[in-house]
Nucleic acid binder design. Structure first.
Length: 596
RNA sequence: GCAGACGUAGUUCAACUGGAUAGAAUAUCGGAUUUCGGCUCCGAGGGUUGAGGGUUCGAAUCCUUCCGUCUGUACCA
């Protein structure tokens, strides 16, 4: 048993023994003691004064006295107001470290038998990925990894929006202005090529509107009657009628886009276990509408349209099927939710989608719960905030979008520039150097986007954001590389790394005890990050761990330490830190180099 | 209009879910290396947590009223 638990158990016993009352274990919790005070863990007694019938100080003192006598881990205590600070015995830290050090798979929780699907990315096939998608993809990938580490079986899913009027727009524009251009002849990545025609559509569409207005039409009429738009609408009809020419063009352009996306995903380091296409799922959900009508969850209006009444849940009435029997967005999403369950029998389903769709998912989930789906309680919208630029919101029309491919390229180039300046890559082959730049550039980018609480909107300043010092990915990567150097040397001079090598160790420096406390915390942090769907919690933890290691490194000698037990111990501590950093970083999708 | 989210050092973010004197990073200033990797370490200054009121032993956190920013509120996706 983890000794944090044994302390809590001790507190529970203390309540029975000192105050003749029982408190349940989940009411009790320990907080790390603030630096200004002596001790490692703090128990706050204020909430329990009713049970003790004593002043805060007296309560804390009685509990402390009991713990000191009955719990071996507690060596001493002090009381400040209602705060009981517990001092942990040094031998306990050493024992704890041995436990962590000898356990396999750092941080991995045992399987909990639950299956969860994480849907993320969900791109449109009419334009390339941008900065907002990067946050989405990194978040989705990381949350999936965190859930795995927390004991879930995870299915990563991508739902591609490959159908609809917006796709037809780029197709129409390509027919008009494409001249048979392909990714090969143009030298453009497929997704960028498609995006180019989407933009071209928009510019020409606007021109047409303008000339229609000049010929006397109102703004609304002009919007509706522009020939290009009519063409796109006509094309969508043909697409739905399976017109071979339209389908052929659609297949061709889609193929280009997917090739482009694959390259981008590969560079981002994300992957999927299953990909759903809206072109296959857009007709789903109509049977659920029937089911909902039969169950009385939905109702039909006079014009034949079908609605759900969510006013009892604080929302409005929402349309689920149009009067003409065609689907709306949510019809399809209901169908897809069922499809996911049919395919994988999941107990939980996470949707990584921006917070502008909060309302939509609120509605969707409430509907599925009203319909009594078994996975209903497990539905979760991982809603994340937008990424802002110093110039304001990203708008594709105004050309203020930060393209994902360009940004990654820029980050890698900056990493290369920095590294060359430092001149630390002697002995690297060209290929090794390239790989390192990739790891550093993407590490910086991923860490930057993931260290912020997903719920919050965040600011991306292209100049200032590309930092390599401070609370950044490369800082943590550097710490790892440095430890790797120590481990190489330890290997050379054959330091004994078995736990027996420091079996009789006594006495620890403060930074050593702190490090052990951090290392022991890893498992808990993973669980917390997974439960909160927040890679930021783990990112913050890894930064703190790296900082604590650097402090230890600056203060204490390793190879210059003459005591061989201490030397073995410090190398082992370094090894465990490296393992933890490596594993932790992999959970937020970041690789760490052996040297840099 | 209505609904929801957010507002914390100059800047970017934390604050263990109601706990101690609100912490890091960055920028600024000052210091550390005969030593295992200086992309390192130590220190200083920097705050009326948007404003007011309330709840209690205790509030950045909960309630309330303002102010400000953003999002949503389509028989669009």
């Amino acid at each position: 048993m983890n000794f944090q638990d044994s302390i809590l158990q001790g507190i529970q016993d203390a309540f029975t023994s000192c105050f003749q009352t029982t408190v349940s274990l989940d009411q009790l919790s320990l907080a790390p003691t603030k630096k200004e005070f002596e001790g490692s863990y703090t128990f706050v007694v204020f909430p329990f004064l009713k049970q003790s019938q004593l002043s805060p100080e007296a309560t804390a003192t009685q509990l402390g006295t009991y713990l000191k006598e009955h719990v071996s881990a507690v060596k001493d205590f002090n009381v400040v107001k209602g705060f009981l600070n517990l001092v942990v015995a040094q031998e306990e830290w050493i024992n704890l470290f041995k436990q962590v050090y000898t356990s396999k798979n750092v941080g991995q929780h045992p399987s909990n038998g639950q299956k969860v699907m994480v849907e993320y990315s969900s791109p449109n096939t009419n334009k390339p990925l941008h900065l907002g998608h990067l946050r989405n993809n990194f978040l989705g990938y990381s949350v999936a990894e965190l859930l795995k580490a927390a004991g879930y079986e995870v299915i990563k899913a991508n739902l591609v929006n490959d159908r609809g009027i917006h796709i037809c727009k780029s197709m129409v524009a390509y027919q008009h202005f494409g001249n048979g251009e392909t990714p090969t002849t143009s030298g453009l990545k497929g997704d960028h090529l498609a995006g180019k025609y989407y933009v071209l559509f928009d510019t020409h569409y606007k021109e047409q509107q303008k000339s229609l207005k000049e010929s006397g039409q109102t703004e609304e009429e002009a919007k509706k009657n522009a020939p290009l738009l009519l063409e796109a609408q006509e094309m969508l009809r043909k697409w739905e009628d399976q017109d071979p020419d339209v389908i052929a063009l659609w297949n061709q352009m889609n193929g280009w886009v997917y090739a482009g996306f694959d390259a981008t995903y590969k560079r981002m380091g994300v992957d999927f276990d299953v990909t759903y296409y809206e072109s296959n799922t857009y007709l789903l959900g109509k049977d659920i509408v029937e089911e909902g009508l039969a169950k009385g969850v939905f109702f039909k209006k006079e014009n034949g349209s079908i609605w759900v009444d969510l006013t009892d849940e604080g929302l409005d009435e929402k349309l689920v099927l149009r009067g003409d029997g065609t689907s709306v967005y949510i019809t399809q999403d209901m169908g897809t939710a069922d499809l996911k369950y049919q395919d994988y029998q999941i107990t939980k389903s996470v949707y990584v989608v921006g917070n502008e769709q909060d309302y939509h998912f609120d509605v969707l989930f409430k509907i599925m719960r009203k319909l009594g789906r078994s996975y209903g309680p497990g539905l979760h919208h991982l809603s994340y905030g937008m990424v802002d630029l110093p110039t304001g919101k990203m708008k594709s029309r105004e050309g203020t979008v930060v393209d994902a491919d360009e940004l990654m390229e820029e980050m890698v180039a900056t990493a290369a520039h920095h590294t060359k300046e430092l001149g630390k890559i002697e002995g690297f082959t060209e290929a090794q150097a390239e790989e390192l730049y990739e790891i550093l550039g993407l590490g910086a980018l991923k860490y930057f986007l993931l260290k912020v609480d997903p719920k919050k909107r965040m600011l991306f300043n292209p100049q200032e954001s590309i930092e390599f010092q401070g609370n950044t990915g490369p800082f943590i990567q550097y710490s790892h590389a440095r430890i790797a150097a120590i481990l190489r040397k330890a290997d050379q001079i054959e330091v004994n790394l078995s736990a027996e090598a420091f079996a009789n160790l006594s006495g620890l420096a403060e930074s050593e005890a702190n490090l052990i406390q951090y290392l022991n915390d890893f498992e808990r942090k993973i669980k917390q990050a997974a439960e909160d769907y927040s890679p930021a919690i783990l990112a913050q933890y890894l930064f703190d761990l790296a900082k604590e290691y650097n402090r230890f490194y600056a203060e204490l000698p390793i190879f210059h330490e003459k005591d061989s037990q201490l030397q073995s111990f410090r190398v082992a501590l370094s090894l465990q830190t490296a393992k933890t950093i490596k594993r932790g970083m992999s959970l937020i999708g970041i690789q760490v180099p052996e040297r840099m």
